[in-house]
Each structure stands twice: as structure tokens, then as C-alpha cells.
């Protein structure tokens, strides 16, 4: 009896986790199902693009700028140990577009967007606005989830592209002003070095992370428990789950894209 207790607890948490994963999978599948069937809410979609894409530009841009700058300093210091300072432009570029641009961009968007989606939809849930939508013959998945998921999946690659550019610019700023690189050489080295798939893979990752962020926000909002505490918990879970899933998905996608 006593010996079995920890086992039972372990079993229970495994079951809960599996059930939650199943529900989440069904939610994501359901979203995709509604994505391809009318009606479509264009106004909601445009509004979501503005909220998720456009208004995330400053935070993604600043993150990329400082990351690119710090990266240049680190690679210069590391490279100096075996007189390879010249690799700075290429390594900054590849590090930004393949990894740091999409991952840090995704994490910042998770913090900004998954939280606000979960809080907004969670509040709608606890104030019966979701029930009201249903009684007004409007499907909450179509009206709330689909526009947000679509907007996040489509605008996130654009955000990553902007982040990549600003990140490389951050490296260039440090390279030229602090490390005495020649400006034209720095830019030319970066341009010649980068291949299409370096950038393309990052953009695909961005789309995947955007999907994760919006689905997590909507799922936790829709399943929010009653009251202000319920909304608080939903918001926290959305950000944590989105961040962890982004990092896990990043590893998996990197395996798929780049392991020989």
C-alpha cells in the first residue's frame, strides 16, 4: 500500500499530462479544421495582424539589436584566441538568422502575445462573453481562435525577417565602431556568406513558433477556470507552455533541417 502510493501518484500525473496533451492536440486540430471552412472573419484577422505583428515590432527589433551587438563582441573575443577575428560577420549572420532571430523573437512574442490572448479570451470566458457568442450563432473557434492563429503564423516570419536584419545591423554597428571592421567589407562578407536556406529555415521556424504562441494563448484562455485567479493561472500557463514548446520545437526543427 505505502510502496504503491508514489507509483500511483506518478501514474496519475502521467495520465493527466497525456490527457492534457491529447486535449491540446485536439484543439490544434480543431483550429485547422475551422481554418478551411467558412465563415471567415476578415476584420478580426486584420485586427489580430495589427496586434500580433505590427505592435510586436519594437520589442522584437530591440531584442535583435542588442543580441546581435553582444554576439559580435563575444565572437570577436572568442575568435581572438586563435586569431580568427575575421569570422565575426559570418558567425553573427548565421547565428542570428538560423537560431537567435527566430528563437528570441518567438520567446518575446510568447511573452507579449500569448499572455494577452490568454488574458483576453480568459476574461471573455469568465464573464460569459464566450457563451454569449455561442447564443448569437457565432462559433468561438472561428471568431476568436482562427483569426489569431492565422495572424500569428503569417506575421511571425515577417517579424523574424525584420529581427534578422536588425540583429545583423547590431553586429555591424559594434563591428565597425568598436572592433575596427571596415563597413563595406563587413556587409559584403555577411552578404556573400549567407545562403538562402539559412534565412529560409529561420522563417519557417518563425511560422511554427507563431502558431504555437497563438494556439497556447487561445487554448489556455478558452479553458480558463472561473474568476480573476483562473484568468491569472491561464495567462501564466499560456506563456510557460508557449516558451517551452518553442524551445522544444526549435530543437526538433533544427534536427530536421540541418542534421546530415
Amino acid at each position: 500500500m505505502n510502496l504503491a502510493a508514489p507509483l500511483a501518484r506518478l501514474g496519475r500525473s502521467v495520465l493527466t499530462t497525456l490527457a492534457a496533451t491529447g486535449r491540446l492536440g485536439m484543439f490544434a486540430g480543431d483550429t485547422l479544421g475551422h481554418l478551411i471552412r467558412p465563415p471567415f472573419y476578415l476584420r478580426e484577422f486584420m485586427h489580430a495582424c495589427l496586434q500580433i505583428g505590427w505592435l510586436s515590432l519594437p520589442v522584437v527589433g530591440l531584442t535583435a539589436l542588442f543580441t546581435g551587438a553582444a554576439l559580435a563582441l563575444q565572437i570577436y573575443a572568442g575568435g581572438a584566441r586563435f586569431s580568427a577575428e575575421a569570422v565575426v560577420p559570418s558567425i553573427v549572420a548565421i547565428g542570428m538568422v538560423r537560431e537567435l532571430g527566430p528563437v528570441l523573437g518567438g520567446l518575446m512574442v510568447a511573452a507579449r502575445v500569448a499572455s494577452s490572448i490568454a488574458a483576453e479570451i480568459g476574461t471573455m470566458k469568465v464573464t460569459e462573453q464566450i457563451d454569449a457568442l455561442v447564443t448569437l450563432s457565432t462559433h468561438p473557434m472561428k471568431y476568436l481562435t482562427v483569426p489569431r492563429v492565422l495572424a500569428a503564423t503569417l506575421t511571425m516570419p515577417l517579424l523574424v525577417a525584420v529581427g534578422d536584419t536588425i540583429g545583423i545591423m547590431g553586429g555591424w554597428l559594434v563591428g565597425v565602431h568598436r572592433l575596427d571592421f571596415n563597413s563595406a567589407t563587413y556587409i559584403k562578407t555577411t552578404w556573400d556568406f549567407l545562403e538562402f536556406w539559412d534565412v529560409g529555415s529561420g522563417l519557417v521556424k518563425g511560422a511554427a513558433f507563431g502558431f504555437i504562441v497563438a494556439v497556447m494563448g487561445c487554448y489556455h484562455g478558452m479553458n480558463s477556470a472561473r474568476g480573476a485567479q483562473g484568468v491569472g493561472r491561464a495567462t501564466k500557463s499560456a506563456v510557460v507552455a508557449a516558451s517551452v514548446l518553442i524551445l522544444a520545437a526549435n530543437y526538433l526543427l533544427t534536427e530536421v533541417f540541418f542534421s546530415a
Binding site: 465563415p39 472573419y41 483576453e120 464573464t127 460569459e128 454569449a132 447564443t135 448569437l136 450563432s137 457565432t138
Partner: peptide, 27 residues
Amino acid sequence: FGMLFQGGALFDSLPVWQNVAFRLLRG
């Protein structure tokens, strides 16, 4: 059906007239 919820359940992202006309603006 039409339903008045106990707490009102108005959509706070929409102005009053769009709340009232919600059904008349879509579907």
C-alpha cells in the same frame, strides 16, 4: 433564440451599437 445574461456579457472590444447589432452584422 435571444438571451440576456445575468452579468450582461457584453463584448467589451466592440462599441455598444455593434454589440446590439452583433447578429445583424454577420451570418
